[in-house]
Design a protein around this nucleic acid. Structure first.
Lengths: 252, 252
DNA sequence: CTAGCAAATTCCGAATAATGGAATGCTTGA
DNA sequence: TCAAGCATTCCATTATTCGGAATTTGCTAG
């Protein structure tokens, strides 16, 4: 399908400029922006003038590099502090539910547990322990391991977390309860880019989960796809894992 | 002086739309936006389409309310995590230094102390304890009290802070060292909107400080104007306090 | 269940805004 | 001091954006 055009070209250009400046926290020159965006310098200069006018871009030194401005940051921060993140993640959940035809969840980390914030149940749903608003242990759920892996990105940080919130409870014969083993396991999660729950929380239930970063280094949430083990063969797990990662990267 | 026009009108409109949506974390309808911004609905609808196209605005439900989109949030968050906040605050410091003809600072809270991150010295400078990169106690400096007042916005929170980082050291005969008195004092700071250091940190030195929020509920930094007491009469303190608040509100 | 109402969306002729190449200005380094 | 390179300004030209009117959609009340 051909890529659709933005309905207002000059606004589209301005947004692309903001995105590009956003990638350069040490500032970026007009010349470099023109090169990266393929825009004539005079047009770019005028669009930057418009962004500076409302504080979305800043140029602290005359003829110097450009930065995102305080108005861009403050508008985003103010909104985020009082918004409901579910509102922005739910379209992703709906897409995942449609794409994988399984139940999908969104959760956040809270100490040693995860809190389920949203859920879209598949037609062929299964009875599960997860209830929106409910909690589960982090170390033995897909969303929990996805959140732990990137919130505590080193073995030491994971061990410190386990020391504070442990001991890690056994839920099934597959549950990882040894902190050192969990740390090693989460190294693999980081390398793969998604977490797997192989009947670690509930017998017969498997899950694939990915972190949602929203531009941050630590995840703000995780989303998961859950199914009974008969519908989650190793090949299927890998397929879902890759597609989940891509969908998250594309949409949030 | 007449207000200058943005060099690209349609971009300016789009940014105004983003700012307005940013004020409504529960979402805002097209009709309400049109009313608040004084824009024809068809123009507004097209501009919103452009913002949605790049993910800066979102409309999770068809014909439903609009929200800031994940691209707007992610671009701001990603940039902020690796930027140097001094870059954006320094123009404010230069303006304050020019306006008040005194030495100005920018600082952040770190536990029981503040860290001075930037400084613009006035022509008629005074020898002071503050060194960029250096630290000072939070409870007896203007920037420290500005940061404490809004980072710990209740008496209980202040007392808990004092219990953790206390005892509060005496620096001059004016230093507030009693946590309950500090809490009461910080109530007054919140009501006034700026903090005062009346020779609490250094004999003969007075200071006015205001928090910098950048859209958040807790301040990301504080800025201050410092002078010897002979140049900071009670009337002058009030004048500087009001002008400082206004300058901060206008610029960051 | 249907009609009316209000908000959202689409359409398209008109006109205004945005464009970008060329020229100019400024700063830095040799 | 001069040249080079980046930033900024100018203005004739182009085409994008505009907004009122019409249409569509969804919800509510009778």
């Amino acid at each position: 399908m051909a890529e659709t055009q933005s309905p207002v070209g000059s606004v589209d250009r301005a947004l692309l400029i903001l995105q590009e400046i956003g990638k350069h926290s040490r500032g970026v020159t007009l010349d470099e922006l023109a090169t990266r965006l393929g825009l004539p310098k005079s047009s770019l200069h005028r669009l930057l003038g418009a962004l500076k006018h409302r504080g979305f871009a800043a140029q602290p030194e005359p003829s110097g590099p450009y930065f995102l401005g305080t108005e861009m940051l403050a508008t985003a921060f103010r909104f985020y502090e009082t918004m409901d993140l579910r509102t922005l993640v739910r379209p992703l959940l709906l897409r995942l539910s449609d794409e994988f035809a399984e139940t999908v969840h969104m959760a956040m980390l809270d100490g040693g547990e995860v809190v389920y914030l949203d859920k879209v149940e598949a037609v062929r749903s299964i009875t599960m322990t997860s209830v929106v608003g409910g909690r589960n242990a982090a170390h033995c759920t897909g969303v929990g391991k996805a959140l732990l892996a990137w919130t505590y990105p080193t073995d030491e940080a994971i061990k410190a977390w386990a020391e504070r919130y442990g001991p890690l409870a056994t839920r099934t014969r597959n549950t990882i309860t040894n902190p050192a083993k969990l740390a090693t396991h989460l190294d693999q999660v980081r390398q793969r880019g998604y977490a797997l729950d192989l009947e670690e929380n509930e017998p017969g239930v498997r899950c694939v989960a990915a972190p949602v970063f929203l531009g941050r280094t630590a995840p703000v949430a995780a989303v998961s796809v859950t199914a009974i083990k008969d519908r989650m063969s190793p090949a299927r797990l890998e397929e879902v894992g890759h597609n989940l990662r891509r969908a998250v990267a594309e949409q949030v």
